[in-house]
Amino acid sequence: MDRIQLVMVTGLSGAGKTSCMAVFENLEFQCIDNAPIELLEQFANLLKTSKEYTKVAYAVKLKDALQAARILSNLDWIDLSILFLDANDDVLLKRYKQSRRSHPLLISERAASLQEAIEFERELAKPVLRISNKVIDTSMMKTNKLQQLIEDYYLHSETDPFRISFISFGYKHGIPKDLDLMFDVRFLPNPFYVDELREQTGNDKAVYDYVMEKPETQEFVEVLTPTLDYLFKNFEQEGRMHLVVGIGCTGGQHRSVTLTNYFADHYAKIYQVHRLHRDADH
Rank of each mutant, 00 (worst) to 15 (best):
K145I: 10
D180A: 10
D64S: 14
E216K: 13
F166D: 02
R100W: 04
D79I: 02
A117P: 08
G239V: 11
V56F: 05
T227W: 12
K51H: 13
L243Y: 07
L105A: 07
Y153M: 10
A22W: 03
G251Y: 05
R122K: 15
E52Q: 15
A112H: 13
I78Q: 09
A280R: 11
G248A: 11
F220S: 05
I78W: 03
T217G: 06
P189T: 03
F166C: 06
D229W: 12
F43G: 09
T201E: 10
A206Y: 09
L27R: 05
L40W: 02
I167L: 15
I32K: 09
E151N: 03
L27P: 02
E213F: 06
T49C: 04
V56K: 06
P226G: 01
K63M: 11
P215T: 02
E121K: 07
F24A: 04
F24V: 05
V9P: 03
L72E: 07
T10Y: 02
I247D: 01
G239P: 03
K214A: 14
D229H: 13
L114Y: 03
T225I: 07
R110W: 00
L47C: 15
Y58L: 15
F84V: 08
A44S: 15
Y262K: 05
F187E: 10
V194P: 01
V185Q: 05
L46C: 07
T159Q: 15
F162H: 06
F29A: 02
F192H: 15
S102M: 13
D33C: 08
I71T: 13
M241S: 14
K205F: 12
R70N: 12
D281H: 15
D229S: 09
R95E: 07
I270P: 00
T18Q: 12
E109G: 06
Q5E: 12
T159Y: 10
L27M: 14
K214W: 04
P215M: 11
P161V: 02
K94G: 04
D2Q: 11
N190V: 08
E196P: 02
G248P: 06
S19M: 04
A206D: 15
L197D: 08
Y267Q: 03
E123A: 10
L46K: 09
Q253E: 14
P104K: 07
D2G: 00
Q98V: 08
L188Y: 04
K51S: 14
K145P: 01
P161M: 08
K134Y: 14
Y96I: 10
A268S: 15
L6K: 03
K214I: 00
M241P: 04
K61T: 04
Y96C: 08
Q42P: 00
D2N: 11
E151P: 01
F166N: 04
D76E: 15
F263D: 01
S108H: 03
H103N: 09
F232D: 03
V60R: 01
T201C: 09
P191V: 08
G248V: 08
Q147F: 01
A22D: 13
D89Q: 13
H266P: 00
Y193A: 06
A264Q: 07
L155W: 00
L179G: 05
N34R: 10
N144F: 14
A112T: 14
